Computed example of a mutant assay.
Amino acid sequence: MSRARSGAVPPTLVVTNDFPPRPGGIQAFVHGLVTRMPPGSVVVYAPRWPGCEAFDRRQPFPVVRHPGRLMLPLPRVARRAAELLRRHGCTTVVFGAAAPLGLLAPRLREAGAERIVMLTHGHEAAWAGVPITRPVLARIGAYADVVTYLGSYTRDRLAAVVDEAKLVRLTPGVDVEAFQPGAGGVEVRKSLGLGDRPVVVCVSRLVRRKGQDVLVRAWPKVLREVPDAVLLLVGGGPIRRRLARAARPLGDAVRITGPVPWSALPSYYDAGDVFAMPCRTRLGGIDVEGLGIVYLEASATGLPVVAGSSGGAPDAVLPGETGLVVDGTSPDDVAEALITLLTRPARAREMGVQGRAWVTERWAWPAVADRFAALLSSRP
Rank of each mutant, 00 (worst) to 15 (best):
I132G: 13
Q27F: 04
R371I: 10
V230N: 04
Y45T: 03
V146L: 06
V14T: 07
G89C: 02
V168F: 09
A99W: 14
G40S: 04
Y153V: 12
A271P: 04
S299V: 08
C202E: 08
W219Q: 12
P181I: 01
R280P: 09
L170V: 08
V130H: 15
V226C: 08
V15F: 07
V203T: 05
V168Y: 00
L74N: 15
D145V: 08
L150V: 11
L108I: 03
P106L: 03
S378Y: 14
R208S: 10
R242W: 09
Q354L: 14
S41K: 03
G112V: 02
Q212H: 00
V42A: 04
G141F: 07
E114V: 08
D228W: 04
D196T: 15
G292Y: 06
W363G: 06
A8V: 12
G237L: 08
W358D: 10
T322M: 07
A218P: 03
T148P: 09
V201H: 03
R76K: 15
R109G: 10
S377H: 10
P23F: 09
R5W: 00
R69S: 13
C52M: 05
L101T: 03
S309P: 07
C279K: 01
L101R: 02
A81I: 14
K190A: 13
L342C: 07
A373T: 14
H31D: 11
G112H: 05
L85N: 06
G323C: 04
V93G: 02
P345V: 07
I286N: 12
Y143W: 14
V230M: 06
L13T: 03
Q212Y: 00
A46V: 12
R58H: 13
N17V: 06
Y149A: 05
P181A: 06
A246D: 08
G32Y: 02
V186N: 15
G290S: 06
P345H: 10
V317D: 00
V117N: 02
W262A: 04
Q59E: 15
E110R: 14
D273I: 06
R69K: 15
A229F: 06
E110N: 11
H123D: 14
R69F: 15
W365Q: 06
L84H: 05
F372P: 05
I26Y: 02
V94S: 06
